[in-house]
Amino acid sequence: MAAGNHSLVTEFILAGLTQQPELQLPLFLLFLGIYVVTVVGNLGMITLIGLSSHLHTPMYYLLSSLSFIDLCHSTVITPKMLVNFVAEKNIISYPECMTQLYFFLVFAISECHMLTAMAYDRYVAICNPLLYNVTMSYQVCSWMVVGVYIMGLTGATAHTGCMLRVLFCKADIINHYFCDLVPLLELSCSSTYINKVVVLCLSAFNIFTPTLAILGSYVFIIASILRIRSTEGRSKAFSTCSSHISAVAVFFGSLAVMYLQPSSVSSEDQGKVPSLFYTIIVPMLNPLIYSLRNKDVKIALNKILEKRSFLCNLS
């Protein structure tokens, strides 16, 4: 991804979240704390699911995959952001910028489709429980996860390939805290028509289509839940879906604000706020949402803590 013949600019300057010096250290500490919680939460979720045999089900297999995506998604953005808070000049080279853009897109697009796969899992579990073990077999889940990553890699390759053909002449200050599509296109000194068409089409496909699929799943899920006679049964069914609905609302809402609003309305400064949600806040919140609102995860965590406490007492 070297600049070579593609661009006259060999490095960019990231404007970051704010230009006020007095806010740099507090923001560094805030986002360092968020990143630590993100890493611990997602690694903890992956480890907990791996160690707890009763969590070896399709639902938690997909959840562990989501945690892996969130961990990688945050790691692509946050460490460089933290360095920029304490560095004198927030420089990122052209190859580093294109690499960050590529992997950001891989995991952002993958998360869109992973949330869709999780919605389908809940649909099968509630609407067709008798066929659940057949429909959501280990082989099917594995192929779903592979498909999610293929979507992510394909979309990222298309976006980044189009970005590599764009020329950057003099403007080198990216008014953002990482290399994102829209702020980069604003710096171009060549035609970006093809890029904007690709951004609009793929953003619609990767945001609008999964959103419709998830909404459609939940229409059938809610209809099935309302047919359950017992209050306890309805409550249990709703509780298994509530955490997923929360994660979907925050993630897709912030993505839509960033990528699907008209260019006449969008502002790079305003775009930083929704970007914070889907790049930093959502990867931190997902393990918290799924652990705090899920009885099975709480039970598994308590068992592991009790087992560890028992072994410590023996020693």
Rank of each mutant, 00 (worst) to 15 (best):
Y138H: 07
Q139Y: 07
V140G: 06
V140H: 11
S142I: 00
M144P: 05
V145L: 13
V148N: 12
V148W: 10
Y149N: 14
Y149E: 12
Y149D: 09
I150M: 11
M151A: 14
G152W: 09
L153K: 02
T154E: 03
T154H: 05
T154F: 09
T154M: 07
G155I: 09
G155T: 09
T157C: 11
T157S: 15
T157Q: 04
T157I: 01
A158G: 02
H159R: 01
T160P: 02
T160V: 14
C162V: 14
M163D: 02
L164V: 04
V166F: 07
C169T: 12
C169H: 06
F178A: 07
F178R: 00
C179D: 08
D180A: 03
L181F: 04
V182C: 01
P183H: 00
L185F: 01
L185G: 00
S188K: 06
S188M: 05
S188L: 05
S190D: 10
S190N: 09
T192A: 07
T192H: 04
T192R: 01
T192Q: 03
Y193I: 14
Y193H: 11
I194N: 02
N195H: 07
K196E: 13
V197F: 09
V197E: 04
V199G: 00
L200C: 11
C201N: 08
A204F: 13
F205K: 04
F205M: 13
F205R: 02
F205E: 06
N206I: 07
T209L: 15
L212G: 11
A213G: 08
I214R: 08
G216N: 11
S217D: 14
V219H: 14
V219F: 14
V219N: 11
F220A: 15
I221G: 03
I221Q: 02
I222G: 04
I222C: 13
A223Y: 12
S224V: 01
S224G: 07
